[in-house]
Design a protein around this nucleic acid. Sequence first.
DNA 1: ATGGCAATGTTTCATTGA
Length: 258
Amino acid sequence: MILAAWNVNSLNVRLPRLLAWLAATKPDVVCLQETKLEDHKFPVVDIAAAGYSAHFSGQRTYNGVAILARDGLEVTDVATGIPSFADEQKRVIAATVAGIRVVDFYVPNGQSVGSDKYRYKLAWCAAAADYLRGELARHASVAVGGDFNVAPEDRDVHDPVLWEGQVLCSVPERAAFAAFLEAGLADSFRMFPQPPATFSWWDYRMLAFPKNRGLRIDHILLSPALAARCTASRIERNERKGEKPSDHAPVLVELRDA
DNA sequence: ATGGCAATGTTTCATTGA
């Protein structure tokens, strides 16, 4: 099966591209971020026509997450938010799909190091790590997909000197990401040989994409039981091309049958 | 080509993203 994560930067704008991508890639489970849609505006009819059930938690203008599951896959125990962390912002949804506990994260951006939003990001991540420890204690098969807004290592950054200490790359943010791994998760992308300078996000400005000036900030993390089933992990760079792309590319893993 | 964003609502500019 294929499990994917994609920050679509407005599902309203990206719906035609999402539908085309679903038809071409045929993922089984998709974690979406930045849907920017209130729940009553979610395009359930279009998603159903594409062959997927949709489970979502959104708000207008900002944030918003959704899990899509291919028809025929059982979806149970949908939960939103982090129970221990009161938050108006819609950044978390989880569901059990075909026996896999799927967690969809839209980690806060942080704006700039030292800002209020940066402090919120670090507090959010600390609560998220606790939440993941609980999920891992309850489920053997856990997949966490999403926009983590952290480039874990210098090799995930087009220009590590330029970005050193900046938001998305700072030491505390990288420590927060490392805490997710220390909870018992593997960064699926690094389980396999990868081409150098592979990224998942490129700024819309300054010709960043054609110059490949990007960051790898979108990830799929796997518990040991799922890591053992994982046969590939890649980033679909081609989705950043063409008319009205998201600034993020989809990331995905292939899992063999249990 | 020496270029220079996109989406949203508060809309003809400000805010946010990363």
